[in-house]
Amino acid sequence: MSKNVLRLENITMQFGGVVAINDLSMRIDEGEIVALIGPNGAGKTTAFNCITGVYEPTNGAVYFHDKVIAAAHPTGKMKRMYAGNDPEKFKGMHVQMTPDKITHMGIARTFQNIRLFKSQTAFENVLIGTHLRRTSNVFSATFHLNDKEENRNREKAMELLDIVGLADVAEEKATSLPYGKQRRLEIARALATEPTLLLLDEPAAGMNPQETIELGQFIQQIKNDFNLTVFVIEHHMDLVMGISDRIYVIEFGKQIAEGTPEEIQNNQAVIDAYLGGNDE
């Protein structure tokens, strides 16, 4: 059995009375491509935000390489409002890492609603992704004593742009690029942080069918080249079925199915959830 990379235990995320995720548990092993699918508003992005430290879950724990990166249980006002299971299970555990720490540990992500640094070029956007692995401090950086590292980072950023096929637009403003290229730029920027786990939030949104097929191949290629584990949210079913080793399906924050692409395609609960409401 291969090594576990990410594990969610009984995650519940509640915004006031709204239960966005309800008692979600899952595991992703090394080298897998796992997809998270579900109708709009099912809580997929919220799950990513709990993993990356943007939100503190209301209840439950997240493990990365068997280390706790988030653990919480309902306290204070939430105690009365809590609508999930097991409010006692994670008592005595409280861990909340900031997103930058989690990225440091090796989880990188892209955003559903593209969040590039708008005043910067494509090249600079990727270059920023190298900052967290710096050995320079503010003085050595100011006096440019870190030229060696700086040049190495610049080369690396350029290589990554080349890999995602954006080398020719390196000096363009990131936000002036067409949608599909912006999404690939976000992937390059995430890779610059040297992750072991890559979270992609709807990487094919806004892409045409041809681009979507290419993206599927591209994800498999970087997975192999960078020894990644990939966790992807996606609505394009062809893409999901084509690249995933396993798929989790959630609806209203609750897991309704888990399995290989074939198992999911034949699962009655999934067919019901998507019946008539196929997003694409």
């Binding site: 943007v54 930058d100 990225t103 955003f111 640094f117 005043s119 920027r189």
Partner: peptide, 16 residues
């Protein structure tokens, strides 16, 4: 500049 442009993205890039 990354922080100025987008705090959430900057933090996701590992910037404290």
């Amino acid at each position: 500049k990354a922080i100025r442009d987008d705090e959430v993205a900057a933090e996701a890039m590992g910037i404290n």
